[in-house]
């Protein structure tokens, strides 16, 4: 709170709430008198709000920030973790009830009887999420049908034209082209990132989805190049996922023979 506000805002029901009373409010343990005071005093309401913001900041940023990832805990549970992490995980488990609970849940979960997998009733294509990088279509050579019309037409790749499309997301460019092959079109692509990030995309997984069905999974090589074959003409979505969890999504590309 600024000094100006501090000077102009005074407690309406002095004395102002104590720090312990403010803590009680934050803990949901305020007594009736404290609650009544708070209801009638904007000054103390603001003090409570500031205290809440500070504790929220601490809770949001610090909660479990020292915990090993769930993946590391799972590796530990299955005796698959590197030897050097075992001691660290065991030391952490001694003090962390959350990780102990995670391991108990995992143990019970793995003990569930395996069951045959019936046909999936729901599509398994992941929806595009807030943190995903949605690559935007930025260029396609002009085609006669597009000249003079909207330049924001759906991206179209034809194996006969030799066109290359370009898509961009934050710090990433993806080039795509289609080539005719015996069993169907082959989608060739290259992902180019900022130099310091390019290595992170090496080995990334490329999923191609068509009508919500997974068609092809391929990998990105050290040069950012990937190849998806064979595909069928029609509309596809592309998801490129790096080992650090970063995802680039390219939606609604039409493939033509």
């Amino acid at each position: 709170m600024s000094s100006e506000k501090n000077q102009t805002m005074n407690c309406r029901m002095p004395p102002p709430l104590t720090d312990d009373q403010i803590s009680a409010v934050l803990d949901g343990e305020a007594d009736v008198d404290t609650q009544r005071h708070l209801d009638q005093c904007p000054y103390c309401q603001q003090r409570v709000e500031e205290a809440r913001q500070i504790e929220h900041l601490l809770e949001q940023h610090l909660f479990r920030f020292t915990c090993p990832s769930s993946q590391v805990l799972s590796m530990y549970h299955l005796n698959l973790g590197p030897a050097e992490t075992v001691d660290a995980v065991e030391h952490h488990l001694e003090q962390c009830p959350h990780c102990r609970t995670e391991l108990e849940v995992l143990s019970d979960y793995l003990d569930l009887e395996p069951t045959p997998s019936p046909p999936e009733p729901q599509a398994l294509k992941p929806r595009t999420r807030l943190g995903d990088l949605l690559a935007v279509f930025v260029s396609q050579p002009l085609q006669p049908a597009l000249r003079g019309g909207s330049q924001m037409a759906r991206p179209v790749l034809a194996s006969t034209s030799g066109d290359m499309l370009m898509f961009e997301a934050t710090g990433i460019t993806v080039f795509l082209e289609l080539q005719a092959e015996d069993e169907g079109p082959q989608l060739k692509g290259q992902l180019v990132a900022e130099p310091e990030q390019q290595a992170g995309w090496s080995g990334a997984l490329v999923d191609v989805w068509q009508d919500d069905q997974l068609q092809i999974v391929a990998t990105v090589d050290d040069m950012g190049v990937f190849s998806c074959y064979p595909l069928q003409p029609g509309e596809i979505d592309l998801r490129i996922k790096a080992a650090d969890g970063s995802v680039v999504v390219i939606e609604d590309i039409e493939l033509r023979e």
Binding site: S69, S70, S74, L78, L80, V105, L106, Y109, L110
Partner: peptide
């Protein structure tokens, strides 16, 4: 291990 990966994805 794959099942543990499912667990990890949910817990994370």
């Amino acid at each position: 291990y794959l099942k543990a990966c499912v667990h990890s994805a949910i817990m994370q």
